[in-house]
Write a protein that binds this DNA or RNA. Sequence first.
DNA 1: TCCATATGTGAAATACATTTCACTTATCTT
DNA 2: AAGATAAGTGAAATGTATTTCACATATGGA
Lengths: 108, 108
Amino acid sequence: MESKCHLFFETLGNKLKIGIITKLKEKPASVNELAKQLKQERSKISHALLTLLGCGFVEVKKEGKKRIYKLNKNTMMPLLSLVEKHVQKYCKTCKKMEGKKDGNNKKS
Amino acid sequence: MESKCHLFFETLGNKLKIGIITKLKEKPASVNELAKQLKQERSKISHALLTLLGCGFVEVKKEGKKRIYKLNKNTMMPLLSLVEKHVQKYCKTCKKMEGKKDGNNKKS
DNA sequence: TCCATATGTGAAATACATTTCACTTATCTT
DNA sequence: AAGATAAGTGAAATGTATTTCACATATGGA
């Protein structure tokens, strides 16, 4: 079972996707809305959403011309709170980076 | 706070590291022991452990010549069970790969 | 049907993480 | 101190994910 679970983390280990998830935590949104809010190319968002979808981190439903993506809160809410707790208590690497602005990370 | 949490996932999104974590779940171990058990170069294990250490997923203590690494079960046990539940319920990508042997994945 | 809006897709280019390997450091034993 | 064992390190090579961009598809309205 654990033999495939690196995919779970691989899929989330990316700033853009975490950005998307953070937005979707507030409310469901379409690709264009996310692109505007996060100031990223639409196509980037689209690719990212597709992988999130494939791993079941988000769901999508059609609504006219738009496709509204929403977070799988069942998984994501407890997951994010677990992460937050961990980072506060244990993560030296994250602590070290806390002073830095996002722009200083090469990874977009 | 979420702005850095992709590092959490990035660090875990790798087969070797999940392999190490799975071994350490059973019992603490040294670099050489892990290398033998996982049939990987010692240096690979060492690099991987360093990043796991930096993010607080494992701890280390010196014991004579050896350094014994042990899992941060506080974080990892609930995390892994959450992942397992999610994969069973939601992850299409993982389901799709279940039939395949590990050797078919290019990522070592 | 034709146009505009919204989104998906494939593949090359790019960026980044992992691997490899030779070398260094640390600790214990004799 | 010398040798043996255990582990860390740096950097080039490699592998893989992300980004980019031109194009394709889908839906609704005039």
